[in-house]
Structures are given as C-alpha cells and as structure tokens.
C-alpha cells in the first residue's frame, strides 16, 4: 500500500517522481508551476525556537495598548481585545466573534500547536495527539490574519490622523514583532518533514509496544 518514490502535485494531480530538493532549492510542479517544497535548514530547531518567541510575544501584543488617541483633550487607548468588546457592545456580535477568532484565538492556537509539535519532535517524544495537532494547524493556517490586522491598524491611523493625535504603544511594537516571528515560522516549518518525523516516531512507538 505504501509507495515512497512517487509524489503527486496537490493542485493538478500530476504523478511525480519523488525528488527531495537540496536545502535552499525549490521544487516546482512542471505542469502547473506550484511550489511543491522548499526545505529549510534545521527546520525543527528553528520552528521550536520561533514558536517559543512567538508564544512569549503574544502576551505583550495582546495586553499592552496598541494605539493611544486624543481628541479635544479626551484620551483613549485600544487593545486587540477591546476592539472585539466594542463591536460586541454595538450589537455586532457576529463580526466581533469573527474578529476575535481571526486576530486573537486562531493565532494563539496556531502558535501553541506549533510549539507543541516542534517541541515533541525536537525532544523525540512521541504523542498520539501529534497527528491531530498537525492537521488542526494545517487547517488553521489560512485563518490566522495578523498581517491583515496590521494593515488595518495603518489604515485606521491614517484615517484618524486628521482629527486626532495618535500615540503608538508598546503593544503595537510587540504585535509587529509577533508578525515577523510568525512569518519566519511559516517559512521554516517544513510540513512534509514534520509529517515524516511524526510517522517515524509513531512507527517506532508502535514497534516498542
């Protein structure tokens, strides 16, 4: 049942001979041009380190004020979460939930999952939930929208510049750092390699029992 020297393109289903590109090289599908793989040096170590950094940064990014605003002597500051609360109080519960999921909960779950997975792989510890974590992380990927949120902050600030004084807070700097870290994490996390390692751990564990 198991075939290891073939691969298939996920987007055009072309049957390919399995070629593992060297580190720094890219493999593209010859028929549809999809980027098939781009292996990264020390994928597991890097992902583990970046996940720890991201997890730590998540807290200042969420707990410290991002933007301070002053209009006619009245001051106010905004957090990621206070935006959700404000929408909720306006009666926009559905939108508030979407914003909460895409900008707070999913990024947190994503970083925790990648921390758990890369940690287990780094220490060679099998865990029967690894497979589930990997699948959840894979499906969550698209719904983590930190960089979109960053752009919204910029647009909102530009809109407010005319009528208010703005002050950028430490929360915003932490948020920018968090985006840099998650982007690097996406680049260094080689899913195929992770799956292979999980499979190995699983088989070894199965034989031991």
């Amino acid at each position: 049942m198991k075939i290891s020297h073939y691969d298939a393109c996920p987007e055009c289903d072309l049957l390919l001979n399995l070629v593992a590109p060297k580190i720094g090289d890219k493999a593209h599908c010859p028929r549809c041009g999809l980027l098939l793989s781009r292996p990264c040096k020390q994928s597991i170590e890097r992902s583990f380190a970046l996940s720890i950094a991201g997890f730590i940064l998540f807290f200042p990014a969420n707990l410290l004020p991002m933007v301070g605003i002053t209009i006619m002597g009245n001051a106010n500051t905004g957090l990621l979460f206070s935006g959700v609360v404000a929408l909720f109080n306006d009666g926009m519960e559905a939108v508030a939930i979407v914003v909460f999921l895409a900008s707070i909960l999913f990024p947190l779950v994503h970083i925790v999952l990648s921390l758990l997975i890369s940690g287990h792989l780094y220490f060679n510890r099998p865990n029967r939930y690894l497979v589930h974590w990997m699948r959840w992380m894979h499906h969550l990927d698209e719904w983590v929208m930190l960089e979109v949120y960053m752009l919204s902050i910029i647009v909102a600030c530009v809109k407010l510049m005319a009528l208010a004084q703005l002050k950028l807070g430490w929360g915003l700097y932490a948020f920018v750092a968090l985006i840099v870290i998650t982007t690097l994490l996406t680049g260094s996390l080689d899913e195929e390699l992770f799956w292979q390692r999980i499979h190995q751990l699983r088989e070894r564990n199965g034989n031991a029992n």
Partner: peptide
C-alpha cells in the same frame, strides 16, 4: 481572499478608539 478582512478589522479598531461623548 483574506486581505478583504481589512475593512472589518479597521472598523473594530475605529469603533473602539473613537468612542467619546462628542464623537
């Protein structure tokens, strides 16, 4: 597709920040 959420996030920021008695 995901970049269209820009407007939605921007509203959540504006609604939160601009909440004074005058405006």
């Amino acid at each position: 597709g995901r970049w269209s959420m820009l407007d939605i996030f921007m509203i959540s920021i504006l609604v939160d920040l601009v909440n004074f008695s005058g405006i």
